[in-house]
């Protein structure tokens, strides 16, 4: 891993904080993501991992600190202390095109077919001609092994298939990073594998990914680094071997993984 540290990180998070009214959701988070890296965010529910992810593409407006994508500040017009002005809608849209996102609840648009879901932004955000957009959309669907389902409406797809269409919708935009917010949590157990398979393949092809997940197996085998959050703070960020090894350094990580293992023992 010596080579990636010399390169500029693709995402830089510096002293990030976020409040919801009186509740401190994130506190002083500093974290980098490098090109082609897979970073998994784990932690108990309410630890702030989803909020952190949603701050990266400004679905949540963070209060303090900075999030930068390839050096460019996300969401706000200027760095520095609040109050600061948010970017115009147009500028924010331009930034978001480079950040793909996959949601727990898929969030496909139910009145559009699988192909239309993928092609929508290609035509109306990237401004591609329709034929070219369709070709790209089909290629994206092929990547997630759903070429035969392009004419289906979401209601006629299984949860796993819907999530794969959602992944295709995001990768068709050719983003520089992909965010996954518990992508398999809403799926029946037998459908989890097909989604994780697609994600593994993306990782192998060098996509930069930030994944909030409860799939410890995925985190252990696919992630380059695992970040553990608790109570809105970053407790540790280390290669999976250090986190999932017999004796993690931090007692909090240990406790979390212990309850996790017990829950999963049948």
């Amino acid at each position: 891993m010596g080579d990636i540290t010399t390169e500029q990180p693709i995402i830089e998070i510096r002293n990030l904080s976020k409040h919801f009214d009186d509740f401190e959701a994130l506190r002083d988070i500093t974290l980098d993501v490098h090109r082609s890296e897979v970073l998994c965010l784990i932690g108990p529910s309410g630890s702030g991992k989803s909020t952190l992810l949603r701050c990266i593409n400004f679905l949540e407006a963070y209060d303090g600190g900075e999030v930068r994508l390839e050096g460019e500040l996300i969401g706000w017009k200027s760095a520095g202390a609040p109050p600061r002005k948010p970017l115009s809608g147009e500028a924010l849209r331009r930034q978001r095109q480079h950040i793909g996102m996959v949601f727990q609840q898929f969030n496909l648009w139910p009145h559009l077919t699988a192909l239309e879901n993928v092609a929508e932004a290609l035509i109306h955000v990237k401004g591609l001609p329709k034929a070219e957009a369709m070709t790209k959309a089909r290629a994206a669907l092929a990547k997630v092994n759903l070429s035969d389902k392009e004419a289906n409406f979401p209601a006629n797809l299984s949860g796993g298939q819907q999530q794969r269409v959602a992944i295709a919708r995001a990768i068709a935009m050719e983003p520089s990073v992909m965010l996954f917010d518990e992508p398999t949590s809403a799926l029946d157990p037998e459908l989890v594998g097909e989604v994780l398979g697609v994600m593994k393949q993306m990782a192998a092809e060098g996509m930069t990914m930030v994944v909030v997940t409860h799939e410890m197996g995925f985190a252990a085998h696919v992630a380059d680094r695992v970040a553990f959050l608790e109570g809105g703070r970053l407790v540790t960020c280390a290669p999976p071997a250090d986190i999932f090894g017999r004796e993690p350094d931090d007692p909090r990580v240990n406790a979390f993984l212990k309850t996790y293992r017990e829950r999963n023992v049948v």
């Binding site: 679905l59 849209r93 978001r96 949601f103 496909l108 929508e120 932004a121 919708r169 995001a170």
Partner: peptide, 17 residues
């Protein structure tokens, strides 16, 4: 569902669209 609108914002669709 709010998530559908978030998904649309994530791929950069304009508010009018």
């Amino acid at each position: 569902p709010k998530g559908q609108i978030e998904a649309a914002r994530c791929v950069g669709l304009s508010e009018g669209r």
